[in-house]
Computed example of a mutant assay.
Amino acid sequence: MAKQHDIQAEIRGTEGKGASRRLRRDGNVPAVLYGAKQDAQAIQLTHKNAMLYAAHEWFYSSIMHMQINGAVQKVLLRDIQRHPFKPTIMHLDFQRVSETEKLRLSVPLHFLNQEKSPAGKLAGVTITHELNEVDIYCLPKDIPEALEVDLSELKLNEIIHLSDVKLPEGVSIPALKLGKEHDLAIVIAKEIKEQEEIAPAADAAAVPASAVKAPAKGAAPAKGAAAKGAAPAKGAAPAKGAAPAKGAAGKK
């Protein structure tokens, strides 16, 4: 039997952006409650309670019993707005639940026995979870807290699809009615490919010019190489077309 989850709220007297800002400054979260063929109602929760509720998985996928000024209503969270960078909840949307009307909602996937599976026991194998939640359609009384996916028989190169998930009675997955292309993979077991090794010859050819060291400052030039701007060796004829050295007399 699913555990009952109780949350606290109060009727909100004023609406509008200015009123919402004042609520937040006072440590409250503005919210709205709608559905079940009734008028929408402005409500509020304390920010402290909202943060406590939001830390639990059931807050996002379970029917909750909301106590509002002494009355209790069954509700489902439909939207949560958070501050872009502060750990703050800005607004909440709740939907009233009718026991006779089916609902579409997301529930989490719980993966079991992965480490016991044949694929999980192999070295060099990675098991990826492509989905962590799935949309279902059912009456409120049939809503599961989560769908369990047993991976105890998962083998290498095997894929588990949405259609492989065992559903409780009265629960369906709407996506499966749209065709085979919507039967998404939720678990994949594949071998990790090693990176290709680069041949040593290729490494040598790829050495950048900047990596080649220049001769040390003051070092003699290599044998047979003339230093830039150096005078010709004693007794050597000047290079063809070269001007005589400064101060040198021309041969008479």
Rank of each mutant, 00 (worst) to 15 (best):
A2N: 15
K3C: 10
K3L: 14
H5K: 11
D6Q: 14
Q8H: 14
A9T: 03
K17Q: 11
G18V: 04
L23V: 06
L23T: 06
R25G: 12
G27E: 11
N28P: 04
P30L: 00
V32L: 13
Q38D: 10
A40W: 07
Q44Y: 03
Q44L: 06
T46V: 06
K48H: 14
L52C: 05
A54D: 12
A55V: 00
E57S: 14
S61K: 03
S62C: 15
M64N: 12
Q67R: 09
N69H: 11
G70A: 00
V75C: 04
V75M: 10
R82G: 07
P84K: 03
K86V: 02
P87V: 01
I89D: 05
Q95P: 10
V97C: 07
K102I: 05
K102V: 00
N113T: 00
Q114I: 13
K116C: 11
K116Y: 12
K116S: 15
I127G: 07
E130P: 02
E133R: 02
I136L: 03
C138G: 03
P140G: 06
K141S: 15
D142C: 00
P144Q: 04
S152N: 07
L154D: 13
L154V: 01
N157M: 08
E158D: 13
I160K: 14
L162S: 05
D164S: 02
D164K: 05
D164L: 01
K166P: 05
L167Q: 07
E169P: 06
G170H: 01
S172P: 00
I173V: 10
P174V: 01
K180Y: 02
E181V: 10
E181M: 09
L184S: 10
A185C: 07
A189G: 09
A189C: 07
I192L: 12
K193T: 08
I198H: 11
A209W: 08
S210D: 13
V212D: 08
A219Y: 07
A226R: 12
G229V: 03
A231K: 12
P232H: 06
P232R: 09
G235R: 01
K246V: 05
A249V: 08
A249W: 11
K252R: 09
